[in-house]
């Protein structure tokens, strides 16, 4: 990779203005993924001086600054207190402590990686991406649209939902072959996200609707897994075949539902 100029702006306005005015400019969060790219970057905009590394709790929300590292997120008391620790559970197998000390929340969201474990987990929480110019955007909308903007923070509604994360990996620290996050709001209101298909996490709407209509039981959890595995598209790559991913989806979704209810 070639970078002509490396800037560390002091304010988010400045970061945004470089991003939108300079040719071939690109944001650097942790830089761990950027560094793998073969791009020629005109101006690199490093956000580390913006004081966006924070995790705070307000009355209704958990707020996570964009340059918070995955390691901070993993061990933070606030994130661990809610949602059965799903956030921590989802990221704790990413490579190693040293990488998680570099990789940021902003980069993990903005990267929109198909394999992303964090996106899968956040997809079943009530999460919003706060962009500097655009303002608040639902996570799903953020993923589906292109934004030439700076992620400032992520906010997650502090509802009392239960959640679980499941994944299957080759070695323990490898990318997931499939990852699944499930949350349960009240009674029968579930959210189910399936990622690393290898495409990015998407929701299993039909399985969610099915669960709304039935009471919890092991059979219904399995049925929901089956429905999810049939409605979601999987593809094959060198890590696994589509058929295997489909099988895993069945099991992991039903397991997550069971875990939440037990």
């Amino acid at each position: 990779m070639i970078i002509d100029e490396y800037k560390k702006p002091k304010t988010i306005e400045e970061a945004y203005s470089i991003l939108t005015t300079k040719e071939n400019s690109q944001i650097i969060g942790g830089g761990a993924y950027m560094r793998l790219s073969k791009k020629h970057i005109g101006t690199a905009v490093d956000l580390s001086n913006l004081k966006l590394d924070f995790i705070t709790e307000t009355e209704n929300y958990i707020e996570i600054g964009a340059t918070t590292t995955l390691r901070e997120l993993e061990i933070n008391d606030i994130t661990n207190k809610y949602f059965n620790g799903i956030i921590s559970k989802s990221i704790k197998n990413i490579v190693g402590v040293q990488l998680r000390n570099i990789a940021t929340v902003g980069g993990s969201i903005a990267g929109k990686f198909g394999f992303s474990d964090l996106i899968a987990a956040l997809s079943v929480l009530d999460s919003k991406v706060i962009l500097y110019k655009t303002g608040a955007v639902n996570l799903l909308d953020f993923i589906n649209k292109k934004h030439n903007d700076v992620i400032e923070k992520i906010i997650i509604t502090k509802n009392n939902l239960n959640a679980d994360f499941q994944s299957i990996r080759n070695t323990k620290t490898d990318y997931a072959i499939l990852n699944v996050a499930v949350s349960k709001h009240n009674n029968n209101f579930y959210k189910i996200a399936v990622g690393a298909r290898p495409g990015i996490a998407i929701c299993a709407d039909k399985a969610e609707s099915f669960l709304k209509t039935v009471d919890f039981s092991k059979e219904n959890a399995e049925k929901a897994g089956l429905i999810a595995s049939e409605e979601i598209k999987f593809t094959s790559n060198f890590r696994a075949s589509a058929e295997y991913r489909q099988e895993l989806c069945k099991t992991l979704v039903s397991r997550a539902i069971l875990n939440i209810n037990c």
């Binding site: 761990a32 040293q98 570099i102």
Partner: peptide, 19 residues
């Protein structure tokens, strides 16, 4: 390539020197 940055272990191969 692990080093300690402000006391925390990081991968120096994946960390921009400018950072």
């Amino acid at each position: 390539c692990t080093v300690l940055l402000d006391g925390k272990p990081i991968l120096s191969c994946s960390y921009f020197a400018a950072k």
